[in-house]
């Protein structure tokens, strides 16, 4: 092998760069994993069970949007029979008023960029 030293050193550097996301966390001590989302409400129930909301809130919101705008159906019935208004800014953000902490952090982590807030007004953060 010609220039074995250089080739192997180059390969090692390449490997180090490629695998850097794997060991960066260990070295820097940065917190990993999905962010813990703080709740700022005393209410204990959501419009749907937490696992469902965590996984599929975007689909729920999409169906709410179509129900309200196109079908004029504004009432959501929760599993326990409680009724809610199908509204992002009149229902969801009453409990989840901490958009920066509750919505944005997880969206950043998941690298998604929902455009809800281009039109819908984000809640004024509680002081």
């Amino acid at each position: 092998m010609y220039d074995a030293g250089r080739v192997i050193a180059g390969l090692l550097i390449f490997l180090a760069i490629v695998t850097s996301p794997l060991w960066y966390r260990l070295v820097s001590g940065a917190e990993g994993g999905p962010p813990q989302l703080p709740l700022v409400t005393t209410d204990t129930t959501c419009v749907a069970p937490t696992p469902y909301m965590r996984a599929l809130h975007m689909e729920l919101l999409n169906s709410w949007r179509d129900d309200v705008v196109r079908r004029g159906d504004r009432v959501h019935i929760g599993i326990d029979g409680t009724t809610y208004e199908k509204s992002l800014s009149r229902t969801c953000t009453h409990c989840h008023s901490n958009k920066a902490e509750f919505c944005d952090r997880c969206h950043d982590y998941a690298a998604v960029n929902p455009y809800c807030w281009d039109c819908h007004v984000e809640p004024r953060e509680a002081q």
Partner: peptide, 10 residues
């Protein structure tokens, strides 16, 4: 739900 009157969160 059938027994109790419907309650609204708002």
């Amino acid at each position: 739900r059938l027994l109790a009157r419907e309650t609204s969160a708002q």
